[in-house]
Nucleic acid binder design. Sequence first.
RNA 1: GGGCCUCUAGCUCAGCUGGUUAGAGCGUGCCCCUGAUAAGGGCAAGGUCGGUGGUUCAAGUCCACCGAGGCCCA
Length: 941
Amino acid sequence: MPVSQYKHTLNLPKTSFPMKANLAQREPALLKRWEQMDLYGKIRTARAGASTFILHDGPPYANGDIHIGHAVNKVLKDFILKSKTLEGLDAPYVPGWDCHGLPIELQVEKRKGKPGAKISPQAFREACRAYAHRQIDGQRRDFQRLGVLGDWKNPYLTMDFAFEADIIRALGRILEKGHIQKGYKPVHWCVDCRSALAEAEVEYRDKASIAIDVRFPVVDEEALLARCHSAPENLGSGPLSLVIWTTTPWTLPANRAVALNPALEYVVVQTEGERLILAEGLLRDTLDRWGIAHYQVLCYARGEAFEGLRLQHPFYDREVPIILGEHVTLDAGTGAVHTAPGHGLEDYLVGSRYGLPVDNPVGGDGRFLPDTPLFAGESVFTANEQVVAVLKAKGALVQASRLTHSYPHCWRHKSPIIFRATPQWFISMDQKGLREAALREIERVRWMPDWGKTRIRGMVQNRPDWCISRQRTWGVPIPFFLHRETGELHPRTSEWIEAIARRVETQGIDAWFALRPEELLGEAEGVQYEKVQDTLDVWFDSGITHACVLERRPELRVPADLYLEGSDQHRGWFQSSLLTALALRDQAPYRQCLTHGFTVDAKGEKMSKSKGNVVRPQDVMKTLGADIIRLWVAATDYRGEMAVSEEILRRTADAYRRIRNTARFLLANLNGFAPAEHQVPPEQMIALDRWAVDRAHQLQEKIRKAYADYQFHLIYQMVHNFCVVDLGSFYLDVIKDRQYTTQADSRARRSCQTALFHIAEAMVRWLAPILSFTAEEIWQHLPGDREESVFLARWYEALFTLDAQEPLDRDFWEQVRSVRVAVAKALETARQSGLIGGSLDAEVDLYCAPDLLETLNRLGEELRFVLITSDASLHPTADRPPEAQDTERAGMALVVRRSPHKKCARCWHLRPEVGTHPAHPDLCGRCLDNLFGAGEERRFA
RNA sequence: GGGCCUCUAGCUCAGCUGGUUAGAGCGUGCCCCUGAUAAGGGCAAGGUCGGUGGUUCAAGUCCACCGAGGCCCA
């Protein structure tokens, strides 16, 4: 088609804002700009003195590349802080890293060997520190690349000397408050790590074990039988034993009792040559298992009847009591549980009620100590066979079999772990009412979603004391001096702690490890006291950030307004922070806790290398761009699992393009618009343009509310719908004609540009927290004076509402839009039949009921512009001709006709005047007016 | 095995305290436009609301159980 000679007389859209985002290239340039202008610093200055909103960053562990879950977490935080900044609040962001701990040690071990072997502990710690720094640099680069704005030059690191010193001080304060307890408890112990493991360091895997049934001969048979409630006439014959079942034969040397359930029924059965005691509920299964077909039940008794009776240990010269415990069940075994307080938490707990000794015959290397009869020096895992052999020799073994079951393993070594009693330091949950205080504070914190409260409450109610000591190298020391003989803490411990903290402040944690007690305590006492060699659980490091960061940084405070982490942190950081804060100052460190779910694949399953469904944020940033990740985070309801996949990201990129193109169209139509001179005051604007601004205003209210409620997925839906429905398919479609064909400086066009300008100003801010890069790019292309960055701006306040009393109110335009829908359907029919192509080929006659007629009449001649037809006329229903078709809209029928007129070469409308002007036979009347006259008047659309 | 949670069209989400034929956008199909053009407009087809059984005049919405999946624990 030849280009019309009049094309150059149109005001066509024009912009340097590119359609193709090319985010992978463009984003780094914007990042550089933000860095060079010190955007974060500028925002702090701009918001200085405003009310603050404190979101405290939970530190990711400084190991490995960030994964999509990290990205979700940081991006959500960024959404919140940027939206708070738009509200005018001062919302600083100090990111942090968790730096000490086992995973880093293991990485460094791989490269340098174990500390104390090839490398000194001091050099090892130095290597850990250097390694952590490298990891932080890598992660920081990725977080920044995501567009997360924060004080990246001054993050907090739990390995900063000042931080390490503050950890020690906090520990001292907690000690003074009486929450610290020394204990001797079984802990998960990894033989390969030679260390106690945190709960988080244990994973469950299948393991093949030997399961054995063992006789514990009853010492006083008569006493036992006398307690049975159905006294038998026949007391039976042969030895009488209680039988236990265990999958850890190696724990038998430490056996100190056999536990029965007080409420369960037990039976004494006569088998061939002996009498055995079992839970009644397991009798059949167990005897079947042993292959015993012939037996006779002699008598019954409840478990509680046997309490205190004594049994003979199967191979040691020792009597052990029968005790009671609710933890004994009929799930497996015999209903009698071998109890070794040194090798199991429940055994320990029930044992402590009975004052049982905590035997601990196993060393840190997993071998029996030299003074252990029969098994000295043997590894516990190989000792199982020997225990079986000994039991056989003693005649105590009923049966041995193989069993595969779920068993705790070291998350790093993947090797089975053991329970082993070791001296440890604890934060006691009940000694000073910590549990009670925590439950109280949990009620006061706002949990989002609200089930977070139920979840953490359940955990706090049931959790054991917090073991805070570790036997590791790369960690903050527990800097206590213990008396060599009494084991007591030095009476001036608080004083020493401050002295040590000062040293750590300048030299780091090595100051403790290198310290000779005499240096502080003096020669006389120095020899009487020894240093504790333990380090602190890294959960203590991160759990204490409210003291080391919030209390320390002038821009922050305790309690924070918000902690925001994944749902796993109910057990982790939310809890460790809560407990330490309560121990320190009896108040929760946060007012709100917001939780997000974990990322999963398209099927809702977790991501793993083996499944090949891992989405790497680095890859997405390199291809689709960080804004696509951000938009995906926004679009997903983070309260549940968050599904990511190639398809989901592709859809997200589609939506992104739509939003971007809408912005581009707004900018392109603002070509030649200088807001200061051309802006039209609201009361002089064309009705439709005022409607559009009103629409944006209504939307902005909802968006601000959604930001305040952290409901980003609603914002995504709202903005996208606005672009597609309100703008794309209606407003922008309608205003093209006016925008292009009326005189450049006419009120008709300037009014429209004013609306577009308002909408663009508002929209760029709606987008900014989410599509940060794209919003900044839009910002740079918007006309008018403005701040250097969209992130220095506040919400756009120049939107206005449509008065309820004006004739073309919201309801009016709703009606117009429903008429448009009806007309579009009719036009489509005409198009399918070949009558018309584009809608401008058509003329429509609408036959309306009185109400609608009156309504549409308000648009006068401008109805055709709203319908985008070459002509549109209104008639009462009474006039409808037979060929008029009904529409879905009640009270309206219509006729679609192909226009008989010629097409105006300029505006493409088919009008009767075309061909009548001698000099410009290709033009319609209003184009002539717009080109050579005063220009057309528009009032409504 | 226990605690907490999720499950609405191919995708992302709405659906308040139970009440007309379950909505939106995207994607898909077909058509149009070529003055938003690796764009834009129109129309259309897509759902036994994870399943089963209850409560109720009435359930996507309440209850129970089951299934799939997630986090945490054992």
